[in-house]
Structure formats: structure tokens, C-alpha cells
Design a protein around this nucleic acid. Structure first.
Lengths: 169, 169
DNA sequence: TATTGTTATACTCTATAACTATA
DNA sequence: TATAGTTATAGAGTATAACAATA
């Protein structure tokens, strides 16, 4: 740890913050969602050090691992990443030896993806932190509320109401 | 257009997307939240044209309007915006004549903010689109689910469980 | 002609550190 | 010394268009 330069006060007076009204914004789901996200996951970024994969890279890695040989564009669509940006993410993962690209002979436009053994190991290393952070972020919710929130989020995302079986043990 | 028969009945794009499994990611609230947000509000950005204020600017504008004379740093903290970035947002709003900055004589380090008449008019113009988008984005939820989702999001954000009274009479 | 992916580029958002001036 | 705000800068993330290769 190095010395931490001071740019902001540790805590501004709680009373000042609490007395701030936000009017109709407080009933805007879009806005409250954003604040909830920032509040819940503001620690995750720094928790996974510079050696780890980034959150966006982790999701791509898991998606490939769960669908060996999947086309690059399909993963991009599911994760709502533009193809032009997906190229860079995949190349970054390939450079680090975490995924392999393969052009199938029957459609040589496309790129099929697989995770390497190193990629699988990286998923193992990161998954613990990722999902622990997820649980911590929602510690203020009961198990029922947690499940409710997940179900409603899935509904908004346009996904089937029921998530697949839990593989974590 | 008439449908052109495919020579190779591979997976249709929709089928390909639906068949993609995401494993433990599907139960990660952090991840599902993100997809939900992208799905629900992907149209909002383009819906408010280039002439309007951006979403981030709108929230700052409303927060100032609801708390006339509030210090700049307090607004930044509540909205989870870094002070260094808040400076730019406020200056952009000031340049367009939407807010006024005032340095109080009793503490000449600080900056007090107020919205101008033009700022209030801008809020009126944007609010309709903002909140309509909010309702449309959650059209797949019942009123009860909507309220539930808002309440749970507030809880995660660390806000009082009950939103203040509606200011519109 | 349509699809798949790449390149180049620009712009927003965010994060960090050093700085001024006031208290 | 601490607080309020500013400046400068770098990075991630995202958006668009033009492009090549293949179907």
C-alpha cells in the first residue's frame, strides 16, 4: 500500500447528504437502478486486482466456456456488446492465452471460440471474488428478496423467468 | 419481402441467441442488473435528441432544482459523481444558462448552485421523455412488481424504504 | 446482396493525482 | 491541517461508418 493522496473528504456530513431531496427522480427506476448498482458494486472493481481479468472480460470468458465453439457474434449479441468492440475483447483474451479462435471450413467468415485450460483456470480464480462480491452487495436483502430481485431483473432483461440449475456447490 | 429459403437450416439468429447458456452468470445479480438496464433503457439515449440535456445532466439539474443553494460537492456525493467530474458537468450546464454558481461570503471555498428559469424550463421539457421512457422500459412488470422493484432497488442503494410524497399535486 | 467480422475513430464516462484557495 | 473545488490526464466502455471476405 502506498500513501493515499487526499482528493475528497472521507465522508461529507451525513446530515447534509440525507437532507438532499431528489423529487421525482426517487421514483424513477432507471435512476434508482443506477445508484443501486454503483452502491452495490463500487468495491468490486478494486477488489479484483490489476492481475485479474476485468468484469467484462470475465463475462465473455464464462459465456464462451459455457458454449464451446460458439460464434463470436452470438456471444456479442447475448452480452449486448457491439461486434466492433467484441473483436478487441476477444483479441485481448487470446493474447493472454485464455481463449482460442478457430475458423470453421464450412463458413469461413465466422470465428468459433473456445476457452483454453488457462482460461478455465482464470475463471476459477476470478469466480470466487465475483460471486462473493455479488452476495455481499445484496447482504441487506433477505433470501426471498434476493430471489425476487433476480427474477424481476431477468424479466426486465427479457429472459425466461426461471434461471437454470445452480452448478455452484 | 418474401422469405428466401435457406440452403442450410442451421440455427436462426434468434435460436442461436436463445440457446446460449450463461451458467452461474445468470444468477449473478450484478450481471443480470446490467443486462436489464441495457435492455430497458437502450432506446432512451437516442429518444432524447441532441438538443436535449443528457441523462446525467438531467439528474444533476433536478437535484439542484430540488435543493436550491445546495453545495456542489453535496450533490456530487448523493449522485455518486466524483468532484473532479462534477466540475465539468456544472460548467456545461452553466455555459448553457441552465444553472447559476454563487460563492457565499461566509465560506468562499464553496460553490452554491441554483437552476435558472431556463433550467426549470429544460427540466419540464425533458421530464416527460425521461419518465415516459421509465414507464415503457418496465411495461412488462405489473404495478405491484414495479413498486417491488423500486423498493428493492432503493434498499440496495441504501435509501429509506419509502420514497417521499409525490411533489406533484 | 446479406452476413460475419475487422479497423479506425470519436465521444462519454469514470478514476486518479496534483493543484489552488480558503477555512 | 483539513475542506471545497479545479485542472489535467488516462483509461474503459461504447457508438458509428467504412471496409474485406465469404456466403
Amino acid at each position: 500500500m502506498t500513501a493515499v493522496p487526499k482528493t475528497e473528504p472521507a465522508l461529507s456530513p451525513a446530515e447534509a447528504k440525507a437532507s438532499v431531496a431528489l423529487g421525482d427522480l426517487e421514483r424513477s427506476v432507471g435512476f434508482v437502478m443506477r445508484i443501486a448498482q454503483l452502491t452495490a458494486f463500487e468495491n468490486l472493481f478494486e477488489e479484483l486486482g490489476p492481475t485479474e481479468v476485468r468484469i467484462s472480460e470475465f463475462t465473455v470468458l464464462v459465456a464462451i466456456a459455457e458454449n464451446p465453439g460458439v460464434r463470436q457474434g452470438v456471444i456479442a449479441d447475448v452480452l449486448k456488446i457491439k461486434w466492433s468492440n467484441m473483436t478487441k475483447v476477444v483479441r485481448a483474451l487470446e493474447t493472454r492465452g485464455l481463449v482460442e479462435r478457430h475458423v470453421p471450413p464450412n463458413d469461413r467468415r465466422s470465428v468459433m471460440l473456445r476457452v483454453t485450460d488457462g482460461g478455465r483456470e482464470q475463471i476459477e480464480r476470478s469466480a470466487t471474488k465475483m460471486y462473493r462480491s455479488d452476495r455481499q452487495a445484496l447482504a441487506m436483502l433477505s433470501d426471498e428478496e434476493h430471489a425476487q430481485y433476480l427474477a424481476l431483473s431477468r424479466k426486465i432483461a427479457g429472459w425466461p423467468s426461471q434461471a437454470p440449475e445452480d452448478s455452484r456447490r
